[in-house]
Amino acid sequence: MTWTLDTLRQRRVRYDDLVPCRNAFIDTRSPGSDRKENFTIIGPGVAESSDQHVHISEPHGFNVGGARQPDGCLNSQHSHEGAEVFVVHTGRWRLFFGPEREEGTLDIAPGDVVSVPTQMFRGFEKLDAGTGFLWVVLGGDDPGRVRWAPSVFDLAEHHGLVLLKSGRLVDRAAGETIPEDEEIETAPDAEEIARLVTPSPERLAECMVRHEALRGNADAVLAAPGVEECGVIAPAASGDGFGPGPISGWWPHGFQLRVLRVAEGAVTPDYHCDEPEVLFVQSGGVRLVSEAGELALGTGDTFTSPQGWTHRLEADADAEVVVVRGGDAPTGPRRAA
């Protein structure tokens, strides 16, 4: 396929163009959680509301979304069936573990990456003043459903929201009724909660990389003067010089995650990927240069590269770009001949 700038622009989601959903989940009216915004950037996500806007529906083998919250705003305790990765774009955040936030916390800051294990309760709160944004990657084309803690169900019922077993929300306060052929979802019982156990602090420490701990790989295919690629999540060795880790996980991810640093005036080699590749500009800005011309990506923008499309990244100022490539062991970027 011949890619034009017009078709490439359709694969770019500007931060300023993100369409939020304010009633995506069962906790949307719970005190402390009623000011959050959820985003589905790539894939269907895990939203329980039909109001959720999907920016790019093309299957990638993983989903990309986001959460934007003001200070003091909570995301209630829940468990995921598939991988859930947080990249802190702006703000300082606290993760809470356990069904009632009683099993430990973890504070994270801009540039930190956390892959929270599956089958455990987690929630998060924005700590510092102002609004912050988390860029989120979920494993699988269908990342499964969210399992909420019992207290979330109690608060939702008090505020007129009911979750069905099909995963759909019913808003009784707005006059909606439960269809006769649908069943109401029930809260997890003690036996299920016991299975959704929080790992030890030592085990959870294996699931986070601090921004200051990122290290470039001199053997990376994209390494060049002023360009370094840092490994973050790799369940297995890839085909471009990266071994497993530093986050490998004991659960499937279905993707690898890196951070690409491009210094002012630096240029990556021309390359293409055979697997899906998504770029998120953590800081600065880059230009994607190809035979079609130049496409600019600014801070907070997301872009999905066409498979097999040859391009390079150029930076007019220091930039950091989060890179997600599909597969637990992707081939990775290949330099153009």
Rank of each mutant, 00 (worst) to 15 (best):
Arg68Val: 07
Lys126Phe: 00
Ala337Trp: 02
Arg11Ser: 06
Val232Cys: 08
Leu138Tyr: 10
Phe153Trp: 02
Leu196Trp: 00
His211Ala: 15
Arg258Glu: 07
Gly45Lys: 07
Ile42Thr: 09
Asp274Glu: 12
Arg101Leu: 09
Glu84Trp: 03
Gly265Asp: 01
Pro70Gln: 11
Gly144Glu: 05
Leu5Cys: 10
Trp3Cys: 08
Gly72Gln: 06
Gly66Tyr: 02
Arg35Met: 14
Glu100Tyr: 09
Gly243Cys: 05
Leu5Ser: 08
Arg210Gly: 11
Arg325Ala: 15
Pro59Gly: 02
Gln10Cys: 11
Thr310Trp: 13
Thr118Met: 11
Arg203Val: 12
Asp71Val: 15
Val281Lys: 00
Arg147His: 03
Arg35Val: 11
Pro330Glu: 06
Val232Phe: 08
Val19His: 10
Glu180Asn: 11
Ala194His: 06
Asn75Ile: 15
Gly123Phe: 02
Glu37Leu: 10
Glu192Lys: 14
Arg312Glu: 03
Val152Tyr: 00
Val197Ser: 13
Val321Pro: 06
Leu163Tyr: 00
Val152Ser: 02
Leu134Val: 08
Leu95Gln: 06
Ala337Thr: 07
Gly132Asp: 00
Arg94Cys: 11
Thr299Pro: 09
Val113Asp: 02
Glu182Gln: 14
Leu163Cys: 04
Ser151Asp: 15
Phe280Cys: 07
Ala218Val: 13
Arg122Gly: 00
Gly284Asn: 06
Gly308Lys: 05
Leu74Ile: 12
Cys230Asp: 06
Asn75Pro: 10
Gly285Thr: 03
Thr2Cys: 06
His53Val: 12
Thr105Ala: 08
Pro179Thr: 00
His159Leu: 12
Glu176Gly: 05
Glu206Phe: 08
Arg22Ser: 14
Glu212Ser: 14
Val13Arg: 00
Thr40Met: 15
Asp6Leu: 10
Gly123Asp: 00
Val321Ser: 10
Leu204Gly: 00
Glu202Lys: 12
Arg210Lys: 12
Pro20Ser: 10
Arg14Glu: 06
Glu176Val: 06
Leu204Cys: 03
Gly72Thr: 05
Glu183Gly: 11
Trp135Pro: 05
Phe133Asp: 01
Phe62His: 02
Gly249Arg: 01
Ile233Gly: 03
Thr105His: 09
Gly298Val: 07
Ala149Arg: 01
Phe303Trp: 05
Arg210Asn: 08
Val289Glu: 14
Leu222Ser: 03
Glu157Val: 10
Leu295Tyr: 00
Ile184Met: 08
Val137Met: 12
Gln119Ser: 13
Cys230Asn: 13
Asp6Trp: 02
